[in-house]
Design a protein around this nucleic acid. Structure first.
Lengths: 338, 338
DNA sequence: CACGCCTGTGCACACGTGTTCAGATACCCG
DNA sequence: CGGGTATCTGAACACGTGTGCACAGGCGTG
C-alpha cells in the first residue's frame, strides 16, 4: 500500500504526524493530542510521542493547522515608509511585541513598493489574524476592504473612523501645545514651524496644537515651511525659513526634520539654543545621540506597541466588540536645544 | 444537504472557490484554473469566473494552496538586533526586495526576545520557502536545524561554512584596509580602533584589515577599545581611548560607534578632522546627515539585499545546487571627518 | 470515414492537521 | 454482578486548494 511512496520518495517530504505515529506505535490522532493542551491522552503515551517527535524532528504543520482551525497566527504589518526613522522604531517594537505573544508579523513596506495595492491583495490571500496599519497616508479603501474580509484592522498613528477598526494614536495637539508653551515661557516670540506633507493628520494636528498655544499668548507663527519628514527635507525647509524670517523658536512636525533643521542652523552659525530653540516630536533614538541631544516631545514607542497588541488581543477575544481608540499621552523631554 | 450550513452559518466563513463556482455556474476546478496561469480554460468562462470572484471578494486561500502545492511563499527573516541601525536598514531593503518578488517576510527580532530559540521553533512550523539570517552572532545550531528541515538558509553578514547554506558578505578586511590607507596617506600615524563585541566576525575581519594596512607601513595601533555597536558605546569607548592615548586617527567597526566617537571628540573639544580623523563602516543613512557627515566605508545595502534575493531565487530554482558565497565590494565615501 | 491531435472539463485525490463521535476500557458504587 | 461514570482511543470528517487523470468533443489530415 505504500508502494508509491517507496518507489518515488518525494523530494524531501516533511515529517508528518503519521510518521511520528508509526514510530511511536500509536494512532495519528494520539500524536495530534500529544501536542494539544488539555486533550485526553495517557501521560506515558504522550511522552513516548514527544520522544519520537523530537527524534524525527517533527513539528505540526502550521499551514494545515491554520487551515483546519480558526487562527493562522499571521499578522500583516503595513508600514507606509520604512525609511522613516520613527516608523521603523515603531515597527521594531511591534515585531518584538508580536513575537512575544506568538503572532508572526508579515511586513509590507509601502515606501519601497510600486504596487502597494497589489501586494496587499496577495497578502490578503492568507487568512490573517489581523492587519496593523502603520502609516500616516494609508489608503482607507484598503482598510475597508479588510473589514469586509472580516479580519481585524488596527490603525496606528491615524484615527480611521470605522465601526470595526481599532485605533492607537498619540495626543498630537497636546504634545506640541506643551512644546510651544515651553518656549513661550522661555520668552520666545518669533515662531517658525516645519510641517510634514499635506494629508498627514499627525502633522496637521501638531501644527494645530502649536497654534493654540501661540493664540493663547496673542501670537501667531512668523513663518511655516513643509518637508517630507526626512532629515534632508528638514534641512532644506529650515534654510528657507532662515532666509525668510528671523526666528528664535522652531517647532518641527517630527524629530528627523528637527535634526535636519539643527544641522542647517549650525551651518549658518546660529547658536542653538542661545539664539534659537529647536524642538522636535517623537523622541526617536537618534534624538538622544551625543552631538544632537534634541529637546523633543516624547511619543512613547513602547507604550504604543503595547497598546496595539492589547487592542489586538481584545479584538481577537471578542470580534464583535465595538471599535476602540487608545490615546497615548506625550511628555516633554528637555535636552539641549530649547 | 447544506442544512447544517444554513442552520448554523459559520461566524464569518471565508468566500471559497465553491461559492464562486456556484455563482458563476461552473465547476470548482474551473475556478481554480481561472486563477492559474497557463491552465486550460475557455476565455469567456475565465472572465465569468473572475467577475463572480470580484463581486464576492474571493481570493484563493494561500494556506490551502501552500499546503497542497510546494511553496508557501513565506520567508522568515531572523535579525539579531533590530535596534541596530545598519541591521534595520538591511532589513528594510530586504523586505522591499522580497515584497517585489511576491515573497512575504516574517520577521523575528532576536534583540527584543528572551526566548529566541523557542520563537524560531514556532515559526519553523510554517513550511517556509527560506530563512534569511541577518545577524553577526546567530547560533549556528539553529541554522543547522533548518537545513535538516530542508529549508534553504541564507546567511547575511557572516559566512557560515555549511554545504547547504548560501552566504552574502561584504569584503570587510578590504574595506577597512582602504580606510586605514586613506588616513596613512593623509599622514596619520597614531591609530586607535573601536571594535565590536567579541564573536562578531565582521568586527574582527575589519580590525584585521586595518592591522594589515598599518603593518605594511611599519605601524601598529596605539590603542583599541570595544563597544557593542551602539552610539552610546562608541561614545564611551572613545572617551576611554582619549584618556589612554593621543590619537590622530580613529577607525570604528561600524558607523553608529563612529558617530558616538565623533560626539565624544567634539565634547572634548577635539577638532575633527583637523586634529583627529574618524572613519566609520557601513554608510548608514545617518552618516550623511548634516552635522554628522561621516567619512566611512560604504557597505552597499541595496546590492546586499539584491544579492540575497538573487541567491534565494537560484536556490529555489535548484535546491540541490552547491552553496554559494557572494562577496560584496566596499568603497570609501569621503565626507567631512577624515 | 478513420485516426490522431488539441482544447476544454469534471471527478477525485492529496496536502496535514484538529476535533467530533462513538466505542472501548477501567473503575467505583450500590 | 449490574450499571453508571470517567478516562482513553481510533476512525472519520472538514478545512480549501491545485492538479493528474480520464473523457468529451472539434478539427484537420490521410
Amino acid at each position: 500500500m505504500d508502494q508509491d511512496k517507496l518507489i518515488a520518495p518525494k523530494r524531501h517530504r516533511r515529517v508528518t504526524a503519521q510518521d511520528v505515529a508509526e514510530a511511536a506505535g500509536v494512532s495519528r490522532s494520539a500524536v495530534s493530542r500529544a501536542f494539544t493542551e488539555g486533550a485526553y491522552l495517557d501521560e506515558e503515551k504522550r511522552e513516548r510521542v514527544r520522544d519520537a517527535a523530537l527524534k524525527l524532528g517533527y513539528r505540526p504543520n502550521a499551514l494545515a493547522a491554520g487551515l483546519q482551525g480558526g487562527r493562522s497566527h499571521l499578522v500583516a504589518i503595513f508600514v507606509g515608509d520604512m525609511r522613516n526613522a520613527y516608523d521603523t522604531e515603531v515597527v521594531t517594537r511591534l515585531v518584538g511585541a508580536l513575537n512575544a505573544i506568538q503572532k508572526w508579523p508579515i511586513l509590507i513596506d509601502g515606501g519601497g513598493l510600486s504596487s502597494v495595492k497589489e501586494a496587499m491583495g496577495e497578502v490578503l490571500r492568507y487568512p490573517l489574524d489581523a492587519l496593523i496599519l502603520r502609516s500616516g497616508s494609508m489608503d482607507p479603501a484598503i482598510a475597508r476592504e479588510c473589514t469586509k474580509l472580516h479580519i481585524p484592522v488596527i490603525s496606528s498613528g491615524r484615527v480611521l473612523n470605522h465601526p470595526q477598526i481599532d485605533n492607537v494614536c498619540c495626543r498630537n495637539a497636546q504634545g506640541s501645545q506643551a512644546a510651544a508653551q515651553l518656549l513661550l515661557d522661555r520668552g520666545r516670540q518669533n515662531f517658525g514651524y516645519i510641517a510634514g506633507p499635506l494629508g498627514y493628520s499627525s502633522s496637521s494636528a501638531r501644527q494645530d496644537g502649536m497654534m493654540r498655544a501661540l493664540a493663547a499668548a496673542g501670537l501667531a507663527p512668523v513663518a511655516i515651511e513643509a518637508g517630507d519628514f526626512t532629515v534632508e527635507s528638514g534641512f532644506a525647509a529650515a534654510e528657507r525659513l532662515f532666509e525668510r524670517a528671523r526666528l528664535d523658536a522652531l517647532l518641527c512636525a517630527n524629530d528627523a526634520m528637527a535634526i535636519g533643521a539643527l544641522g542647517a542652523a549650525r551651518a549658518r552659525g546660529i547658536d542653538v539654543p542661545a539664539d534659537l530653540s529647536i524642538v522636535g516630536f517623537d523622541d526617536i533614538s537618534m534624538a538622544r545621540w551625543p552631538g544632537i541631544n534634541l529637546t523633543t516631545v516624547c511619543n512613547p514607542i513602547d507604550i504604543y506597541a503595547d497598546k496595539v497588541v492589547e487592542l489586538l488581543s481584545a479584538r481577537l477575544a471578542d470580534p464583535e466588540k465595538p471599535s476602540d481608540v487608545a490615546y497615548i499621552d506625550t511628555h516633554l523631554v528637555l535636552r539641549g536645544t530649547h
